[in-house]
Amino acid sequence: MKVSITAFVALALASSSLATPSVKRHGPGKRGLVWPWYNGGLDPGRLNDGQGTVNLIYDYETSAPSSSNGNGGLAFIGMQRCTDCISSPISQLAARQQQLGFTTVFTLNEPDLNGISPQQAADWYKQHINPLAIKKALPAVTSSQNAGQGLDWVQQMVNACSGGCFYDYINIHWYGQSFAQFQSHVNDAHARFPNKKIVVTEFALQNPPGGQADQINFFRQGFAFLDSASFVEMYFPFLATSPSLFQSNDRNGSLFVGTGSTLYNNDGSISAVGQLLLQA
């Protein structure tokens, strides 16, 4: 049978494509950006490679991220971080969810350190979060091991709910000194709540002596662990900003965490940590 050169080349390319399917990345559905309010000049789209490696973003509010490019093509997750506040009034939660179309909501930010009791949180959650017909996370708690804080606070809230709080995710933060500590804490959350998925919405080493190099080594292990853990639904390294913005707008936070974990450089380009987040 006579075959033209053009047809032969096309057939060869098609066969090559079938023989070597694209490699599936580990990140889709899990990796996201923690986007602070002062990031107006940064572009979240720089961390959107079009392959879904990073595909989520939240900004501690129920309003859209402040940036040079909206949500950068990433899936926005609303967060009612406070019981009621000017930036995210509880009376506007349902309307904002409808307007922005977010399909997951995070709730109270570190109530275990902010004077909100588990009973208060349970009553508030039943009234304002239960009615939303979307995915829901219990309040985000610290990694404190003190009685009445961290995962202990979550358990007390679950008890106070008496089965009346509807939720899909346990939401945790972590700061510490090593990957081993981080892995142990995430596994502990899973052991305590084995029937729920875990979301890790803040995590980094606590101001390590080696700065960015130490954070990179930590995140390299942390990302691989979280990608492989079937019980982890989403994770967000802290923080999607630049060192200068972090220091000038959240001095206490930058002193606590250091600036080595930021995903941007001061010129708005992607940092070495951000490049690591974009790797499979």
Rank of each mutant, 00 (worst) to 15 (best):
L113F: 13
L108V: 06
K135M: 03
L113M: 12
D123P: 03
A140H: 11
A137T: 02
K135N: 06
K126E: 12
L108D: 11
A140M: 10
L108G: 14
P131T: 08
S117D: 15
D123L: 13
Y125S: 03
N109R: 08
P111Y: 12
K136I: 01
K126H: 07
Q120E: 13
E110M: 07
K136V: 06
H128I: 03
W124S: 06
S117V: 14
K136M: 04
P139W: 05
Q120G: 07
I129N: 02
I116W: 12
G115W: 13
L108H: 09
A133H: 10
Q120Y: 08
A121K: 11
I134A: 00
A137I: 04
S117G: 08
E110I: 10
P111A: 15
N109C: 05
K135V: 06
D112W: 13
W124G: 03
Y125T: 06
A133W: 01
N130P: 01
D123V: 13
Y125H: 05
A122G: 06
I116C: 07
Q127T: 15
A121F: 13
Q127N: 08
Q119F: 06
K135F: 06
S117N: 14
P118Q: 07
A133Q: 14
I129L: 09
F106S: 03
Q120W: 00
G115K: 11
K136Q: 07
L132M: 03
N130E: 04
I134S: 01
L138W: 09
L113E: 14
A121H: 12
Y125N: 02
A140V: 09
N109M: 07
K135T: 03
P131S: 03
A140W: 05
A137H: 00
F106D: 01
P111G: 14
I129K: 00
D112Q: 13
L108T: 09
L108R: 08
A140R: 10
N109H: 09
K135S: 08
T107C: 00
Q127F: 01
Y125W: 01
W124V: 05
Q127L: 05
W124K: 05
Q127I: 05
F106V: 04
H128M: 00
H128Y: 14
E110D: 11
Y125P: 01
I129M: 11
A137L: 11
L138I: 09
D123T: 14
F106R: 05
